[in-house]
Design a protein around this nucleic acid. Sequence first.
DNA 1: TCCTCACATCGATATATGTCGATCGGTTTC
DNA 2: GAAACCGATCGACATATATCGATGTGAGGA
Lengths: 132, 132
Amino acid sequence: MPSMVVNAYNRVVPGATATPALDAIPLRTRGCCQPVAPRIPGPDADECAAIFRALGDTTRLQMIHMLAEATEPICVCDFTAAFDLGQPTISHHLAKLREVGLIVSKRRGIWTFHQLNPEMSPAAREVVALLH
Amino acid sequence: MPSMVVNAYNRVVPGATATPALDAIPLRTRGCCQPVAPRIPGPDADECAAIFRALGDTTRLQMIHMLAEATEPICVCDFTAAFDLGQPTISHHLAKLREVGLIVSKRRGIWTFHQLNPEMSPAAREVVALLH
DNA sequence: TCCTCACATCGATATATGTCGATCGGTTTC
DNA sequence: GAAACCGATCGACATATATCGATGTGAGGA
């Protein structure tokens, strides 16, 4: 069975018989650009990007790490003490994490405790597992 | 061996003998907030957050997915055709991905080809693997 | 030599984001 | 009921970011 040449989009190039190595990039004719490509479905990509964006802030990343390590929910005042940031800022970051479904919050008397969302999406769970 | 009560930071609470469940959060005294917590080392957290931030844009996430699926490097004009964005914008996104070490670029005649960085950091590699 | 093409860079602009101070609502304690 | 405390929300501000048009650069082709 002869190997087939595929282009950058995994499409078979008719007539080609060898698979070029990275250091021998195949010749292209000018204006060869093609709009066809494997794409993540739009909504999935947006949701995934939103999760990454939520983790793209050092403070929020630390928060998720702490929650992943903790054996109990953590309250806002704990985070306020742990990070050199004001309480409204901490609250803002927690809201961001809640919006993308990474954490859930539970009011208990005076305090609001936060924990990793037990019903987190599988994709999110895999990412968080990398931080543990 | 008696079970020990630990607080949100995994510190043992002296005198307590039971491990509270999530629905029975232990009493706290007012103003109890503690700054102690497991933290990711600063530089590591910053680097990790930078990678997540790079992936926190739908276009860049699609780019990484395409590169992970592709069997050959992809040139800028391919991305320009695939996304409804101008060429400077595509170039900007590729530069962002290059800055955090997710991709490398190689000039070949007229075209500049891009591929996933073979020397990507282990952490980055794990994240990218999730997108494949 | 001059033109064309692919890509990078620059400047500008609109939007998003992180942070703070001030304030408000709800709960516990006195 | 008043005071103290925790946390959310609002408005403001500075910075970061995504995007575009215009221009620069370097390689090939006519």
